[in-house]
Structures are given as structure tokens and as C-alpha cells.
Design a protein around this nucleic acid. Structure first.
Lengths: 225, 225
DNA sequence: GTTAAAAAAGGTTAAGGAAAGGTTAAAGTC
DNA sequence: GACTTTAACCTTTCCTTAACCTTTTTTAAC
């Protein structure tokens, strides 16, 4: 992360660290590239507005060295020119300041997921889904008055949906992740499980598993964690 | 724990005590620091919304005296500003009220584990299981009216279950730990032992060894719902 | 450009069989 | 003789499949 604002940078860093990301914070744009060459990073977050070398120049230098590494820009305002320029340089996403840290987190998650498959975030085992608490280890979802025990597959699927909460979980993704690359020939099994999950969750009208016809499913629930 | 709400505080305290934590409950923020100096705590739980001195100020004062002690904030709602402020002060975690007490418990456990590694627990030899006391060295479990002598394997297995009390002990974990990495080919031995342990523990209906089909076992005890 | 029919995708339920686990007793081991 | 493993038989849990609907999308005719 390259960010010149000391306060903002410190808050960001600890916020990300709390969420189990390993963050190196460079305050001075001039040192960004040498830091980049010193270590193998998974993701770059670059402030655009920097005193000496701006974020775009840094991105350019990074792209010369690595074409694949995801880059997220932080821009102070929504300047369309800035955003276009960012994408031209191969940005994966941008965020306008001031911004919702939760959104940044979601974007990071999404990008890492895209990059690593599901390597990232898989260790989370406790989820909140509307009125329910879901423990993926004990495979139990519980509200105040009810408690259901889930089967292994049900649980895996619900966990996946939770990791993609309020995003579309692609069918293929779920099939690969749970049933493995080559196993689903004629299988409609997943649909059956989806039906079962919906049955469990129907006690809470604020929670919903939406079908995105032709692409996947989305678990819709409040935007808290 | 600093918490001004009498009802909530009392519930919290007894809930944590039930789970074998030693809790000192300070209702008035003004007395928090003097309490902190009077005793050596392992962990602080601070309500943010307090009448006189707020949780953040307390945290600041605590950090002046001790940089390492874990702090968990309780915030009434999901105020992002609060959360950020908390992290800036070196919070280890935060929980938004109303919350799932199970989640708090897991977070406490996780933080303590992070802090102590596994130092705490593996060498433990005395356990309380509902109405029973269990000594893993003498291999004896005893209640007021009964006493059973366990075999070595029975005892090892029960000890493992105790170390994982109210968490899932994965089958693999137990097999590796007791029978060693490569020994269990066709073995159903463990199931037999599980059956025996259940027989010992059946005198106390509040204690239960639950099966999590396909993944492991959980010794449930001291849970109120 | 509309609309109706066909095709594809997805929803739901129930049945059958496979796998995992529970329990007991007999057979090994040390 | 005390422990542990194996075997046998039973119960429960799980997953898949098939069958029959409903919804959405595509195709083709008007």
C-alpha cells in the first residue's frame, strides 16, 4: 500500500491487518518500486494523489516488472479521466476517497478470489446470515428459536455462499469447489442442495438465495458482517 | 470487562464464568483503570458506550500501561468510525451488540491462542466435565457417587475431547494423535472407544459426545441455551 | 416487432442405496 | 488378566437419481 497520509495509512494498515492481510505500508511514492522489487506481493493499493511520484507512474513501473499483479487505485475524487487512465494501466479496480473500508475489503476479497480461486478466506468458519448464526465446523445454523444440523455438502455449499455473500457465486465455481473438476456429468445434485438450503433459511424473510439464471446463485443478506 | 448495563453485564459475566473464564466486571468506567492496576488480567473487554469515561479513553489509558494486553471492544451498533478508532488504539477485535455470545467466545479463544500459542492446554491433566472430575494422569473420572478407572486409550481419547471441549475434534486429529500417522488402515477401534466413553458419561445428562458425521466428535458440556 | 411454441435451466420431492457410525462380543496382544 | 483390535450386525445419515413442475430463454412463425 502506497499512501502518503500518515493517519489514513495507519488506520488502513491496522484495519487490513486485523482482517488477516499482511500489509506493507510505503508512505513515500519514491520508495514504492524498490519496495516492490524487494518482496513478492499479492496485491498493490496505490494512492493516486501523491506528493512526488504519482500513483499512475508507480503503476506503470510495476506493470513493467509484473503484468499480472492486481492493482487497486485510491483516487480522491471521481475524476473520470483518472479512472480511465487507471484502467488503461491495467488497474483491477479503483476506489474513491472517502470510502467505505468494508467495500475496499470486499473488493480485495473479490480480486484475491479471482486470482487464487478460493484459497483466500477459506479459513473463516463462523458466519452471520440475517437472524442466523452459522458454524461451518459444527455444521449448525441456529436462530433464537430453531437449530438445524446440516449435512457436509449442505454446509460446504452454504459456506461458499457466505464467502460470496451479496455477490454471485458462479455455478461452476461451486461445482468445482465441492464436487471436484471432473465429477459432475449429468448431475443435478446441487440444485437439490440449494433447495434444501432455501428451506432452512426461509424462517428469515430478510435472507434470500437468489438465482441468477445461467450463471449462479447469490445469498442476499444484510451488509454487515 | 467494563460494561455499564447491569443486566447485560451480569449475563455476560455468568456466561463467561460458565465457560471457565475468571471475569471481573466493572460497571463504572471511572473505576476501570484502578481495577486494571490492581490485578493482572489476560484480556480486556470494553464497552465503547459508557456514561462517564468511554471505552476508547479506557483503552488509551490501558495501552499506556500495557502495550500487549488484548482488548476487545463492544460497540452498540456498527459504527465504522468507532471500529476504526478502536483499531487505531490497538484493539485486537471488536464485537457489535447485539451479538452472538458464541462468537465472542470463539474470538476470546482465538485471541488467547494467538497469544499463548498452545502452551496453554496440552499439558493440562485435570478436567471438569459436567458433574465429573477427570484426572488424565491417574486415568480416573469421578462424580459424587461413582468412580471409573479408564484404560490408557480411553483416557487419551477423553483428554483430547476435553482439550477440544465444545469444539469439533476432527476424526483425523484423534487418529493421528493416538494411533499415529499410518496405523489406521481398516480400524474401527476408535468408534468402540467412543462408545465406551459415552457409557461412562451417560450418568450426567448435561454432558454429551456429539457426532459430527463425516468430520469428528464434540464433547458438549456446560452449554446453556 | 410480437407472440407462441420449443428448449433449456432450474425447483422440489421422494425413493434407493452407499457410506459412516454405534454397539456388542469374540479374538488377539502384551 | 487387563487392554485393544477385529468382526458382525444394525441404525442413522448422506448423496444421488428420477420424476414431475415452473420459470426463463431461444427459436421461429406471423
Amino acid at each position: 500500500m502506497v499512501e502518503d497520509d500518515r493517519n489514513f495509512g495507519a488506520v488502513m494498515q491496522s484495519y487490513l491487518k486485523i482482517h488477516d492481510y499482511d500489509v506493507e505500508w510505503i508512505a513515500d511514492g519514491a520508495h514504492a518500486i524498490e519496495a516492490f522489487e524487494r518482496q513478492a506481493f499479492d496485491l498493490c493499493i496505490l494512492d493516486v494523489m501523491l506528493p512526488n511520484v504519482d500513483g499512475f507512474s508507480i503503476a506503470e513501473a510495476i506493470r513493467e516488472r509484473n503484468e499480472d499483479i492486481p492493482i487497486i487505485f485510491l483516487t480522491a475524487k471521481t475524476l473520470k479521466k483518472d479512472i480511465m487512465e487507471g484502467f488503461r494501466l491495467g488497474a483491477d479496480d479503483y476506489i474513491t476517497k472517502p470510502f467505505d473500508s468494508e467495500i475496499l475489503l470486499m473488493k480485495i476479497k473479490a480480486i484475491m478470489r479471482r486470482k487464487n480461486g478460493l484459497k483466500n478466506g477459506v479459513d473463516q468458519e463462523l458466519f452471520r446470515i440475517g437472524m442466523f448464526g452459522f458454524n461451518a465446523l459444527t455444521r449448525v445454523i441456529r436462530s433464537d428459536d430453531r437449530e438445524y444440523k446440516l449435512s457436509p455438502k449442505e454446509s460446504e455449499l452454504l459456506k461458499l455462499l457466505c464467502l460470496y455473500k451479496n455477490e454471485v457465486l458462479p455455478r461452476e465455481e461451486a461445482l468445482n469447489s465441492i464436487w471436484g473438476e471432473e465429477s459432475y456429468f449429468t448431475t443435478r445434485s446441487m440444485d437439490v442442495f440449494m433447495s434444501k438450503l432455501r428451506k432452512y433459511l426461509k424462517d428469515d424473510p430478510s435472507v434470500e438465495i437468489t438465482t441468477v439464471h445461467g450463471s449462479g446463485y447469490m445469498l442476499k443478506s444484510d451488509i454487515r458482517n
